[in-house]
Amino acid sequence: MSFASVLSIMISCIFVENFVLVKFYGICPFLGVSRKMGSSVGMGLAVIFVMTISSLITHAVDIFLLIPFEITYLRTIAFILIIAALVQVVEMFLHKFVPALYSALGIYLPLITTNCAVLGSAIVISQKGAEFGFIEAVLYGAFSGVGFMMALVIFSSVRERLEFTPCPKAFEGLPRTLIAAGLVAMAFMGFSGLKIF
């Protein structure tokens, strides 16, 4: 696996095909957890963690079970099952052996069980087909998580500034948050079409 293809996956996952701002996956945590910088970092770390592991496992199940038996139409439900179980196991494991990380990720870890960005990354990888190797899948999951975290951190800093700006009553709260989200997403459209290799 060449350095160029690693770089290509990295750039495409973080900027060109950013899960939140370009593909619009995981909007719920994007709006829900972006109020403070600290919590958005926690959520981002948890997503990176789970996405990396789930990309590997779902890709393995896809290649060794779903494709050979021609039941790829069951991908969604199979992936949800895998991700949910995986998050639970990882949570138990962390609670027992890495309590520091467990308390840092806090409530965000169980929240990810049904996060569509995690499921999204698994499905996008599966659509890339069997020739997409395991290392690529892991990298894709990890960098997608990084892209998610970056979008969350950028947007939380935007929102922290918004808190102190005066604005018409009708736009307070969610409306102006959504407008701001649209503007941030528009900035990311500038990356579309960017292709290195």
Binding site: F69, L81, V89, F93, H95, K96
Partner: peptide, 24 residues
């Protein structure tokens, strides 16, 4: 086939969770 595979997956992860619950 799909029933067996999905059921198998469910059983596998159920067992995994049960074991994890015991161990961790």
């Amino acid at each position: 086939t799909p029933l067996a595979i999905l059921g198998g997956l469910g059983l596998f992860f159920g067992a995994l969770l049960a074991i994890a619950g015991r161990c961790f």
